[in-house]
Design a protein around this nucleic acid. Sequence first.
DNA 1: CAGCGGATATTCT
DNA 2: GAATATCCGCTGA
Length: 216
Amino acid sequence: MIATPDRTPLPREFFDRPVLDVAPDLLGRILVRTTPDGPIALRLTEVEAYDGADDPGSHAYRGRTARNGVMFGPPGHVYVYFTYGMWFCMNLVCGPEGKASAVLLRAGEIIEGAELARTRRLSARNDKELAKGPARLATALDVDRSLDGTDACTSGATPLKVLAGTPVPRDQVRNGPRTGVAGDGGNGDIHPWRFWIANDPTVSPYRAHVPRRRRS
DNA sequence: CAGCGGATATTCT
DNA sequence: GAATATCCGCTGA
């Protein structure tokens, strides 16, 4: 017997909590992206927490900039950034206004609208790869900077919403160092803030931080 | 399969 | 100038 996922939208209070509480609680939730061509729904399987004030790995660590301003705003809004000159990644802002913490959505399983996602992810070899990685997830859902600052918690028509779905039992949640973040992953790592669903085939592979040199 | 170079905006030094 | 919350295509085993 499989429980039917709860399609009730998560209220803003869900996100107005410490980011380390919200992040594991987002696993199994359903993100719905409404596009002109139709809806795409994704079950979240992997996330990472970023805590502005005390977190050197966070975009907000060195204060507010034109890029990260949404992180300092109210919870339940979408923070989208552009990285490596090519890719977008999306976050959900958590905690009270001014806290500048957010959850990076790293991977998920497309459960509705896969045909739409495939047209945006032509290099994916199978459906498990459609949203395996944060930039792939944003690409599959047609998310870019035009959605930065969008409220995911208001009622009515919004481009992005988060539904209650089916929360993952705590014993199915794994955590470890964040992917590609300088300072994370060493012995005595104090930021094991990547959370994923155990044995889920859509979770992205872990990669340690590796500084890369630019060609001269 | 692992390793690597290329693409190149935003931010900080 | 140099690093970065990444991905893709190519190379060689």
